[in-house]
Write a protein that binds this DNA or RNA. Structure first.
Length: 288
DNA sequence: GAAGCGTGGCC
DNA sequence: TGGCCAAGCTT
């Protein structure tokens, strides 16, 4: 048993945030919806959308029975709206192939649209208490600091990192599941990227990075995305026009939204290819 | 393995 | 101000 276990688990028991998808009796569907929404998106922005989503679609089948466009509209401004399409597609698979019940194994979850290694492990662990290495950006940062003595983990997960994470995973299923959410929480609220609050950390005295004097990251450059002026921004603007409209929008409305014709046409084509928009009649665009 | 994919808040 | 960051997935 790692020396980190007891202080981290004790800290989590006392300091965990009260989040809807963590409450006792929460459905696996609620957990699944939260995991989709939390991919690359802060908790505070997910909270209201998650609440409205679960009220409107309390089960996967309820969502699957509506057009995908309703999911895109309800997604609002969470960002990366393809996640809404994938969540709808996953709900459809659950309805048609799993009897409307969220599957409880990693492999079945991983097979769902929009579910990768992290999300499959997270749902299996948080909703079903199964033992998995749950490697998100928070856990990776906590382990990089406490165990590897580095400010940040490598740009991509490698075999050594995964084995290291597995080596400190508690043996019992239930302990492992709590460990996973506890290390995530520690990374989210204490061992943060920009301003780690080491004075509030339950394992500061065991932390290799702190012991080394908190040396600055010296690995490969970490990628930072541009946004202003990119195709992504253009797509967001165009989709926003349709999302906030009633019914199909004429092409002129989109042309007025983004004046660089070449980029606008490329973005529009991409939205159609991705299925975020459809063209019900020539020159008109709507949600699917 | 790199690139593409939204949005908003913070310092 | 603008770079940085936020529970990744797909191609």
């Amino acid at each position: 048993m790692s020396d980190l276990h007891q202080p981290v688990l004790r800290w989590y028991a006392e300091h965990q945030r009260d989040l809807p998808w963590r409450r006792p009796g929460t459905s696996a569907w609620s957990v699944m919806v939260s995991e989709f929404m939390l991919q690359q998106t802060p908790v505070v922005r997910v909270l209201p959308v998650h609440e409205a989503w679960l009220e409107r679609w309390p089960t996967p089948t309820a969502l699957a029975d509506e057009p995908a466009g309703e999911a895109v509209r309800a997604w609002g401004r969470l960002g990366y709206p393809r996640r809404a399409l994938r969540l709808h597609a996953a709900a459809t698979v659950i309805r048609d192939a799993h009897g409307g019940i969220v599957p409880d194994t990693y492999d079945e979850l991983l097979a769902l649209p929009g579910v990768g290694d992290y999300t499959a492990a997270a749902i299996a662990s948080f909703a079903f208490g199964r033992r998995h290495v749950v490697l998100d950006t928070n856990v990776r940062r906590v382990l990089a600091r406490t165990l590897a003595g580095a400010e940040f983990p490598a740009p991509a997960v490698n075999k050594a990192e995964r084995e290291l994470a597995g080596s400190v995973l508690p043996d019992a299923d239930e302990d492992a599941a709590v460990w996973a959410v506890a290390t995530m929480e520690l990374g989210a609220v204490v061992c943060t990227a920009a301003r780690p609050a080491c004075e509030r950390c339950p394992v500061v005295d065991l932390c290799a990075w702190h012991a080394a004097g908190r040396p600055a990251y010296d690995g490969p450059a970490r990628k930072v995305q541009d946004y202003a002026g990119t195709d992504r921004q253009c797509r967001g603007r165009l989709l926003g026009v349709v999302r906030d409209a009633d019914g199909a929008v004429p092409r002129g409305r989109l042309e007025a939204e983004w004046h660089l014709a070449e980029q606008r046409d490329r973005a529009l084509a991409g939205l159609l290819t991705d299925g975020l928009l459809v063209e019900p009649e020539p020159g008109y665009y709507a949600l699917p």
